[in-house]
Design a binder for these strands. Structure first.
Length: 736
DNA sequence: CCCGGTCGGT
């Protein structure tokens, strides 16, 4: 029995097929081919293939084209197998050529379809009106505009441009390659413009954001079908014109055009992105009336709409009610948690997906989970995903997935792994450069960040505003005033980027810390926008460092106005007074602080041990191992004292609305997390923690000493940047 | 018997 298909199709010389097939109606209903529609795995595919060989069907072009078609576009596609089949045929007919070109045009590497097209012509086979739509699609999908124009020349030579399918495919190809003039020319020259050609050109305009032109075509077209309406709604949605999108939807209903599944999905996207939750709810009840309430695509879109609008409970209850969840159901729910900063829930649901569902995660799943890993410093889970991706996607990992992995490593404290991923990437996007650049900046690797910036410019990448946030924050972390000024000018003059608050924030921080107050003030005056709390905040910090009492008072007033209930400004100002010996003013601020009833953001530190993320608050006793943790804390205090550590109590004010007690400083959340890390990991292991606020001075000094006493690398992420503690010192060189 | 345009998750 021929159980091995490779043996079956590999023999030389090549398969010579009879020039004509038996009547196709006989073939079409053949039981062996009917089996294909039920085939779900490569194994059964191979069995069916053997069947086809046994019954002699493999001597027909029809059966082979069906097999190739199935291998190349079914859910369990295996393009390599399709090519193997194809190569075994000596003189493929049109159908076979078309099928193999179509298979490649829909694959991950659509450019290969063009290679087959060239081979087809060289072999003397004549492309027909079925061939060109596939070839044009691959020119569009692979972005090969010159090749697209050459194919257009072929079409004209063969007089096939009057075929409606070829005609609309041409418009689509030009439009998707961004050549709207080309698309318009094809459209204008034709005398057989149908609804599809109109809609295709209209979509081309919409894609570029030219909604006025799109609207004009829409109004001018003789007949509109449901796809035309949907395309118009989608066009408005994609360029953020949600009101117009929803208005078009209402108009279509007034004209008694019945929305279909795609319409609903598109409208729900508009509701999700624009926050029109009331309309979303109305659409939901309308869907129920229409009996579409159990359509999985629609339910998935509803979950997305509810979760993006903050109603996670409604979203979750709909998610739980789905009997047969698909990968998108999982992705939207995980993505919803991630979007609303419910990172723990995102990771928990991801675990549940792996353990309790039969749905395999895909790249979008990871794109939704990785930012949550990054936020919680869940490095083990992030690494697991990396290994999984390498194993399951081999060398076809997308640029965005690699970028997301890189970002995760950088934010979890492993900048070396981030750089490794970066170097291994074949295609880098601007986002990839931005991620590695700001990663290096976050880790205080300033020279590296500036090197990377030069490198990306040399490779011809055009930096954007995010790039410059990375560059300028690198300069500000290292106090490189001259570089900061230079790059700020470069950004504005060379790259014509209007500075945003973030950029000014970096500059003010940099100038303030260097004591260049008049330059900082004149920069603030030059801004087109109102300074935000970050800008005043960094200036106030600078006032404290340089003991600028008078300026500090003015700056603090600005902060009080912006954030009346944030205690940070009061604390900084009282520190400034304290350091100037103005105790009356200190007392006055403290009273005010107590009167206003500040909303203090509780300090919270997370640490991952054995793939589980643990979170600790100040003086937290909720952890099951609390008793051991506090024993360890006491031991640490003793060791610190013996090493000559003196608590720096200048920032005790941070605890002003805590019940102040002896030892409060050693109960800051980062200390508890480190103590937990020390008792639950092997000696010598690196400890990684992530804190939601900035590390206080006292904890910073204590942690430096702890890294020496326990001989551990401690990598701490605070709200701003990373601190790598090692052998008693910190990578930030005490300047943060 | 294989052809075109809209549509969800970054």
């Amino acid at each position: 029995m021929l159980s091995s298909p490779t043996i079956a199709i590999a023999p030389a010389p090549l398969h010579v097929l009879p020039s004509t097939d038996p009547p196709y109606k006989l073939l079409q209903s053949h039981p062996s081919l009917a089996l294909l529609s039920k085939c779900r795995s490569t194994r059964t595919l191979k069995q069916i293939h053997s069947q086809i060989i046994k019954t002699g069907l493999h001597n027909t072009q029809f059966a082979l084209s069906k097999l190739i078609e199935f291998c190349s576009i079914s859910p369990c596609s295996d393009l390599a197998y399709a090519v193997l089949l194809f190569e075994s045929i000596e003189q493929p007919n049109h159908l076979i050529w078309n099928t193999v070109i179509r298979g490649h045009s829909l694959s991950d590497s659509p450019a290969l379809a063009i290679d087959f097209f060239v081979r087809m012509i060289v072999s003397g086979a004549v492309p027909n009106c079925y061939t060109f739509p596939f070839v044009l699609k691959s020119c569009a999908r692979s972005g090969l505009a010159p090749e697209g124009r050459q194919v257009h020349a072929h079409i004209l030579k063969r007089g096939l441009d009057s075929d409606v399918f070829v005609h609309s495919s041409l418009i689509s190809m030009y439009a998707q390659n961004g050549d709207l003039e080309g698309a318009r020319l094809v459209f204008d020259k034709s005398s057989h413009r149908d609804t599809v050609s109109f809609t295709t050109l209209m979509t081309g305009y919409a894609l570029k954001g030219y909604m006025d032109d799109a609207k004009k075509l829409f109004d001018d077209m003789p007949r509109r079908d449901i796809v035309s309406w949907n395309a118009m709604i989608a066009g408005f949605t994609q360029c953020g014109k949600f009101d117009e999108a929803l208005e078009t939807f209402r108009k279509m209903q007034r004209k008694n055009v019945l929305p279909n599944e795609s319409t609903i999905v598109t409208v729900l996207v508009a509701c999700a992105q624009s926050g029109h939750i009331e309309l979303g709810k109305w659409v939901h009840s309308w869907i129920k009336d229409q009996g579409m309430g159990s359509n999985l695509r629609i339910v998935n879109s509803l979950i997305d709409m509810y979760s993006k609008n903050g109603d996670l409970e409604k979203a979750r209850s709909m998610f739980d009610a789905i009997q047969e969840k698909d990968v998108i159901s999982w992705n939207v729910m995980i993505g919803g948690y991630n979007h609303m900063n419910h990172h723990r829930e995102a990771l928990e649901l991801f675990r549940e997906m792996l353990l309790q569902s039969h749905v395999k995660p895909n790249d979008v799943t990871f794109l939704n989970v990785l930012p949550s890993c990054a936020c919680l410093c869940a490095l083990d889970l992030g690494k697991w995903i990396h290994v999984y991706v390498d194993k399951n996607y081999k060398n076809c990992t997308s640029t965005s997935l690699s970028t997301s992995l890189m970002d995760m490593y950088a934010k979890c404290g492993n900048i070396v792994a981030a750089e490794q991923v970066f170097r291994s990437m074949e295609h880098k996007s601007l986002a990839s450069w931005n991620a590695i650049l700001s990663g290096s900046a976050m880790h205080g690797e300033v020279e590296r960040a500036l090197e990377l910036f030069d490198e990306m410019l040399n490779e011809g990448f055009e930096p954007d505003e995010i790039t410059f946030v990375g560059v300028l924050s690198a300069c500000s972390h290292a106090g490189l005033v001259e570089f900061g000024r230079k790059n700020f000018t470069l950004m504005v003059d060379e790259f014509k980027i209007t500075p945003q608050l973030h950029h000014y924030g970096c500059m003010i921080n940099l100038l303030g810390r260097a004591g260049l107050f008049s330059e900082a003030e004149s920069m603030i005056r030059s801004m087109d926008m109102e300074p935000d709390e970050a800008i005043w905040g960094s200036l106030l910090k600078a006032c404290r460092i340089h003991r600028q009492v008078q300026l500090g008072e003015t700056v603090a007033q600005n902060l009080f106005k912006l954030e009346p209930s944030n205690p940070g400004a009061y604390i900084l100002l009282s520190n400034i007074y304290a350091e100037a010996g103005r105790w009356d003013d200190v007392a006055r601020i403290r009273t005010r602080l107590n009167d206003v009833g500040m909303k203090k953001v509780p300090g919270c530190t997370s640490i991952e041990v054995n793939s589980v993320v643990h979170e600790f608050l100040v003086a937290d006793k909720a952890h099951p191992q609390s008793e051991q943790i506090y024993k360890m804390l006491a031991e640490i205090d003793g060791l610190l004292e013996r090493a000559g550590f003196e608590p720096d109590t200048t920032e005790v004010l941070y605890d002003i609305d805590e019940e102040w007690k002896e030892g409060a400083l050693s109960q800051h959340s980062e200390r508890i997390a480190i103590a937990f890390g020390l008792i639950s990991t092997k000696p010598g292991t690196t400890i990684r923690i992530a804190k939601n606020l900035r590390v206080c001075r006292n904890c910073h000094s204590a942690t430096k000493l702890m890294s020496k006493i326990f001989n551990r690398d401690i990598i701490a992420r605070d709200r701003n940047r990373f601190h790598h503690f090692r052998h008693g010192s910190c990578s930030c060189k005490d300047c943060w």
